[in-house]
């Protein structure tokens, strides 16, 4: 069990969000989508140029840019 930034997760890797360090509009947009502490996420894929990243959470797919994924810490299995 280690905690890493979401940017560094590999495709197919699963984990649980431990913290979202963003406030203002960025934080609000991230939380609106259900990316909050305790949520389970899986990396579903990456765009052809490696950025943005597509993640799976609660049965649906979200996309984030890497510099946005930086705000999210994930405990990976």
């Amino acid at each position: 069990m280690t905690t890493i930034s979401m940017r560094n997760m590999s495709v197919g890797q699963r984990g649980q969000i431990t913290a979202v360090k963003a406030d203002g509009e960025m934080g609000r947009r991230i939380r609106d989508m259900g990316l909050i502490r305790g949520a389970e996420v899986t990396i579903q894929g990456r765009a052809p140029l490696y950025d943005p990243v597509a993640i799976r959470i609660k049965g649906f797919t979200l996309t984030l840019r890497n510099n946005e994924a930086d705000f999210i810490s994930v405990e990976v299995k």
Partner: peptide
């Protein structure tokens, strides 16, 4: 700032 890209990929 760039508007955050957090976006849904709908089915």
């Amino acid at each position: 700032e760039a508007t955050p890209f957090v976006m849904e990929l709908p089915p």
